[in-house]
Computed example of a mutant assay.
Amino acid sequence: MYELGHEHISTEWRLFIDSSKASLKAVLLHNGNEKPSVPIAHAVGLKETYESMETILRVIDYRAHNWNICGDLKVVSLLLGLQLGYTKHMCFLCLWDSRDEANHYDTTE
Score class of each variant (00 low, 15 high):
Y2C: 14
E3V: 04
E3W: 00
E3R: 03
L4F: 07
L4Q: 12
L4V: 04
G5W: 02
H6W: 10
H6T: 05
H6F: 15
H6G: 08
E7I: 13
E7R: 11
H8T: 02
I9E: 13
S10A: 15
S10K: 11
S10R: 08
E12C: 01
E12Y: 04
E12S: 05
W13L: 02
W13M: 09
W13C: 08
R14H: 14
L15S: 10
L15Y: 05
F16P: 04
I17D: 02
D18C: 06
D18M: 06
D18Q: 02
S19H: 02
S20V: 01
S20Y: 00
K21H: 07
K21F: 10
K25E: 14
A26K: 01
A26G: 05
V27T: 13
V27D: 03
L29S: 11
L29K: 11
H30D: 07
G32S: 08
N33G: 03
E34M: 13
K35G: 01
K35F: 12
P39Y: 09
I40Y: 07
H42F: 15
H42N: 14
A43D: 03
V44Y: 02
V44P: 01
V44W: 06
G45T: 03
G45W: 11
L46S: 06
L46Q: 06
L46P: 02
E48Y: 06
T49L: 09
T49M: 02
T49K: 06
Y50G: 00
Y50W: 08
E51I: 04
S52L: 10
S52H: 01
M53G: 03
M53Q: 00
E54K: 06
E54R: 05
T55P: 03
T55D: 12
T55N: 13
T55G: 10
I56E: 02
L57A: 11
R58E: 15
R58I: 14
R58H: 14
R63L: 10
R63W: 07
H65P: 04
N66L: 09
N68K: 01
I69P: 08
I69L: 01
C70G: 00
G71H: 00
G71P: 05
G71R: 07
D72W: 04
L73Y: 11
L73H: 13
V75A: 08
V76W: 07
V76Y: 09
L78N: 02
L78I: 09
L78E: 01
L78M: 08
L79M: 08
L79G: 09
L79A: 00
G81P: 03
Q83F: 04
Q83N: 13
Q83W: 08
Q83E: 15
Q83K: 13
L84M: 06
L84D: 03
G85I: 05
G85V: 04
Y86T: 13
T87S: 15
T87Q: 12
K88M: 05
H89F: 15
H89A: 03
H89M: 13
C91Y: 12
C91W: 10
C91K: 13
C91I: 11
C94H: 08
C94S: 12
L95W: 09
W96A: 14
W96V: 13
D97H: 06
D97I: 10
D97Q: 03
D97K: 01
S98L: 12
S98A: 12
R99T: 15
R99P: 06
D100R: 07
E101S: 12
E101I: 11
A102V: 10
A102Y: 09
A102M: 08
A102S: 12
N103K: 09
N103D: 04
Y105R: 11
D106T: 01
T108Y: 04
E109I: 14
